[in-house]
Simulated assay, not measured.
Amino acid sequence: MDERRTTPQLDLPLHRLQVPRPHLLPFAIGSFDTIGPLSRAGFPHRHAFFEIVYVTGGAGAHVVDLVHRPIRPPQLCVVAPGQVHYWTEPEGLTGQVVLFNEDFLLGHPQDLAALRTLAARPVLPLGDRARAVGALLADMEHEYEVRPAGYPGVLRASLHILIVRALRARAPGETGAAPGRRTELASAFTRLIADPGGVQLSVASCAQELGVSTGHLQTLVKQATGRTPGRLIRQQQTLEAKRLLAGTSLTIRQVSREAGFGDPAYFCRFFRRETGMTPGQFRAGVGGNHHDPRITSIAAAPGGP
């Protein structure tokens, strides 16, 4: 259901959504087997689309943006465009995989912000919500396979319900209510900088892209997220640098450029200030595992980040 493409300058695969009748329905749902072997790919790669994975059985681990989580079914995982992920030693994975792009969410724009929130936590344990989530996904898969009259609307509504239930699993009482202006702007800003090319943007260029003043962007993003736009850009630059150091063979100079820094020396100082390690030390610590060994034990703990 998805196609592997390699970004020439990064040698980090980018998967683009390939589904039947993409001009009608940029959406697919199925099992790991029906979606295809790339649904459990064992190499670091990015998506140009959203993926929601509901794991009901199996063993192994899932690594999303350097965070390593053992598979403990039943659990839900949301992977957003631009994130780097892969599976390690997957055995007997069962469940459902949902693939879709932003165009599929036009009727529920607030779901974009919710999905970014969910993607910030690699795994959502479902507990007693698993039965309801499983039933909802089974109904969505049936709609997708049978395609009765009005099925696109049913799928969009069901996806919205799935996202709301996932938010409840993350933080009880969070229902995905309709956003205000500041939430919409903050969501648009985070989507903008989450794109691999977005790390090279400044606060001023982001404001221009979004059609607001720099001061207005500063105020609304700080109110919505508790962090300044500049801080969010720096965090995104750090994450992108980690992705490239862990998942590619680019030189430090090349990583510096791709992460939005013109001066490699400044990049090295920046990276050390943000992480406590030089880029070389980080890459050496990651080795061939493609995840940050310092956060494995924290991430594996229940309720971890």
Rank of each mutant, 00 (worst) to 15 (best):
M1G: 06
L10G: 06
L14N: 09
Q18G: 09
V53T: 09
T56F: 02
G57C: 06
G60T: 04
A61I: 02
H62R: 07
V67N: 14
P70H: 00
P70N: 04
V78Y: 02
P81N: 08
G82K: 02
Y86N: 01
Y86P: 03
W87I: 03
P90Q: 03
E91Y: 06
E91M: 12
L93F: 07
V98E: 06
F100R: 00
F100M: 03
Q110N: 08
D111Y: 10
L115K: 01
A119N: 01
R121N: 01
D128K: 05
A130K: 02
A130T: 01
A135V: 10
L136P: 02
A138S: 12
E143D: 12
R147F: 00
V154T: 10
L155E: 04
A157Q: 08
I161A: 14
A169Q: 11
T175E: 15
A177R: 12
P179Y: 07
E184R: 13
L185T: 00
F189R: 06
I193C: 00
G198L: 11
Q200S: 15
L201H: 13
Q208V: 15
E209F: 09
L210E: 14
V212P: 05
V212T: 10
L217R: 09
A224H: 06
T225L: 13
T225H: 11
G226D: 13
Q235F: 03
Q235I: 13
Q237F: 00
L244C: 12
L245N: 10
A246I: 08
G247P: 02
I252R: 11
E258S: 08
A259S: 14
G260R: 04
F261G: 00
P264N: 03
M277F: 02
H291I: 14
H291T: 15
D292N: 14
R294A: 09
I295T: 15
I298E: 08
P302V: 06
G304T: 12
P305E: 12
